[in-house]
Design a protein around this nucleic acid. Structure first.
Lengths: 200, 200
DNA sequence: CATCGAATGTGGCCACTGTCAACATCGGGC
DNA sequence: GCCCGATGTTGACAGTGGCCACATTCGATG
């Protein structure tokens, strides 16, 4: 039954690590605990990861993919709704992007933390799993649709990202962590208003 | 010379801890290393701090004070400049606030990290050393001076803070850490433009 | 000034972690 | 069928945060 060789250890370690990351954040990803839960001796992980940081990087990569997926879902939902014109549709997609980002961070603080605290490994993310790439496309589309002025396009990714990322971190483990949900959501909408107006 | 009683241990520990925090961030603040550098046995720290987290909180408090001071300095500088009217002056102060925040984060990444990663101890910051309070006042003044519309005042602290905080964290240890300084500064100015226009 | 209790610092200990080196076991290609 | 590389295991080490019992010193009280 339990053969000497696990057969699928690397994947199991990553999955277990993800569980720990979700439950307890970066510090919860303890190599020995991961190994224990995977039913394997401590040290076995070293056959698949150079060190703890390498495992964290893999978990971070997964977190980024999840974040990307959550954003894509919200974008698609916004896209499927009725809109009077393409400009409005593009604006809705941009809003959805930001909302999804914050919602993900709040719903999965541990993963979110790991995603941004771990040093990414040498080869980054695929273009189609990188949240930053997604935002870039949404903004490009918004320019075409006339929701974002071409003059204001340069640097817009960073600005949008900064606003939303800061909002998320302040509310995840920062000084705003104790803010009520309704207030958080209301303020977020106001911020998204600002962004939309500022870029138009 | 080296008497049994240090005489000033608590303060020494905090100072040493600050050095470590500045040099290596939160993980660099190792109780035993702090004690070592303070020329005292490990464990002595427990007479002054409940645990490592308590020392980190104290360091975080210091970081917040430094951040506050840096912001205040920039604000004063902006205030001392010539301005055509009070509206412009208030806008300049708001910009200075944001710039100082980012500059501090980039200049003191370790302290900045500790300030926002450590759990603040029970009694928070004095009103006059809390960066958030400072921002609030700057915004209030800006409303009076007509640089910020009263309609847009609610939630403005959080939005300004989020934008600037996100910008800072993305550039300190996030995916934008490798961005060139000129680009960072240029983008920051654009973001400050957005904020100023968005709140007017 | 003497004394004694509280405050402060010490040394030893424990459980735990990441990492390394040596060894065990397995599975697939000659 | 055998052997070598890949994969897991065991044992060890240094380093950490935290607790305990003990040592030293300071300061208030007599």
């Amino acid at each position: 039954m339990t053969s000497y060789h696990h057969g699928n250890l690397r994947e199991s370690l990553v999955e277990t690590g993800i569980e720990l990351a979700r439950a307890q954040g970066p510090d919860g990803v303890v190599l020995r605990e991961v190994a224990r839960r995977a039913g394997v001796s401590h040290n076995a992980a070293y056959r698949h990861f150079a060190d703890r940081e390498a495992l964290l990087s893999e978990i971070a990569r997964h977190g980024m993919r999840e974040l990307h997926a959550a954003m894509q879902r919200e974008i698609d939902t916004a896209d499927a709704e009725d809109h009077p014109d393409e400009r409005t549709r593009a604006a809705a997609r941009l809003r959805a992007t930001g909302r999804a980002y914050v919602d993900f961070a709040v719903a999965e603080p541990g993963l979110f933390d790991v995603a941004f605290s771990a040093i990414p490994d040498e080869d980054g993310l695929d273009a189609d799993t990188d949240p930053y790439d997604l935002l870039t496309h949404v903004l490009d589309d918004a320019v075409v649709a006339g929701a974002v002025s071409a003059d204001l396009r340069p640097g817009a990714e960073v600005i949008c990202w900064a606003a939303v990322h800061g909002f998320a971190t302040l509310h995840v483990h920062g000084p705003r962590a104790s803010a009520p949900v309704e207030e958080r959501n209301a303020t977020l909408e106001v911020m998204l208003d600002h962004i939309a107006r500022g870029l138009a």
